[in-house]
Nucleic acid binder design. Sequence first.
DNA 1: TAGAGATAAGGTCAAGATGACCTAAAGGGA
DNA 2: TCCCTTTAGGTCATCTTGACCTTATCTCTA
Lengths: 244, 244
Amino acid sequence: MSREHQQGIDVTVDLVILTIRDSELHALLVERGNEPYRGRQALPGGFLRPGETLEHAARRELKEETGLDAARLHLEQLRAYSEPNRDPRGRVITVAFLALGPDLPIPTAGTDASDAAWVPVPSILAEPGLLAFDHLTILRDALERARSQLEYTTVATAFCPEPFTISDLRKVYETVWRLKLDPSNFRRKVTRADRFLEATGERRLTEPGRPAPLYRRGPAHLLHPPLLREGHLARLHTTTPALR
Amino acid sequence: MSREHQQGIDVTVDLVILTIRDSELHALLVERGNEPYRGRQALPGGFLRPGETLEHAARRELKEETGLDAARLHLEQLRAYSEPNRDPRGRVITVAFLALGPDLPIPTAGTDASDAAWVPVPSILAEPGLLAFDHLTILRDALERARSQLEYTTVATAFCPEPFTISDLRKVYETVWRLKLDPSNFRRKVTRADRFLEATGERRLTEPGRPAPLYRRGPAHLLHPPLLREGHLARLHTTTPALR
DNA sequence: TAGAGATAAGGTCAAGATGACCTAAAGGGA
DNA sequence: TCCCTTTAGGTCATCTTGACCTTATCTCTA
């Protein structure tokens, strides 16, 4: 590796922050306050700073641009995007992160963004010109990652404020996958999965109907056996346009 | 995103190239010809060039450093590594790629590397100080990715030169997972999986025993249903020290 | 206060998948 | 020709899955 290849490339992080509000998947978007793409919607993000890792930059931007407490969110690296012309300012590579969280407060506008807001994912996808840069591609990749993570890992609990009921958890799967799942079979699966859920012993009494026991996330990170989205009472949602 | 945050960071790609030789998983390592870590083993890689994507750089390095034809290999992005002190030369971020291929020729030494060679993965893992930089971490992550990809995708066929037999394919799973699988049950699973394999109609007559029908990769990328490595006749290999 | 409505727990049952094991088929070599 | 080897494919008990039903326990309304 000789020095002559050095480019002095600019590196950013971008965040796909997903949450569920009113039984619909939402992503956090900011309105860009600067050129390029001034006034257009974009994923929150910013430049990597000298001494920090990409993960640190992602958590910092999360706090700076959205006021959200990064500690409460699930955060994972998605991948790097490096098309040479993806940013009109020049050579800028971005590393995208996927963040998942429970129903979060309306974010406060940050320094770089004139405005930040939760936008329903289906309406972002329905309007292909909405997002700046290659952020629509990033969002699509993030969505597919989130959907497949729900099958094999326990990240679905990241969408639920603790403690939560099994119905809460099922609604996460139904919303992200856009399917209806059989409540009985779903409960059988998640309660048998190894250390997925931990019963608190308490019950939720606020709603009508039989009180639901409350659970916390268990220590498991991987879901054994996995919860596959294929045959699973695959009645598709009919409410909104197709996601892909 | 204001310009003041620009860093002029150096970006490299690193490749974890895996193949199976003599029923053992091997990775391609190069001996470093330059400082830092001169003389130590490292993953093949190099600096990203001005007009190219990371994927392009990965394919270019694959060809340059190893003489391998990148078109025949499965190549996918793993993740970015960005610890501030991971490279003593300064701020260098690397994006790691995972490449899988059938038993490949002995590589020819490239320009940057004094030597390139296939090294059995267990012996790399058994000698933690062998690899330069954070390349052991990258290798471990790549291994785990490859193992889990075998469960849910059809990439195992990337290890087999076409055409291949079901036994060839089973040996891929056994080698990467370090398990013994029941041949009968394995065949039942892979032949029933949707568009995983395509029969050529030919048979392999070279070896003793009943001739095995030959197959090509099918168009499927995802494996439905998945092939999980848990109960699967989980007789562990007893040949070499544990991989993790 | 009794019932209606809502929601959750949990059972049943047929169909399918899985793991363990066995037998038959089809080649080469002694 | 008779073994040895390797593959194809069957069997069977057990477990899992999808579909559906009943019962339990709350709130709300008449």
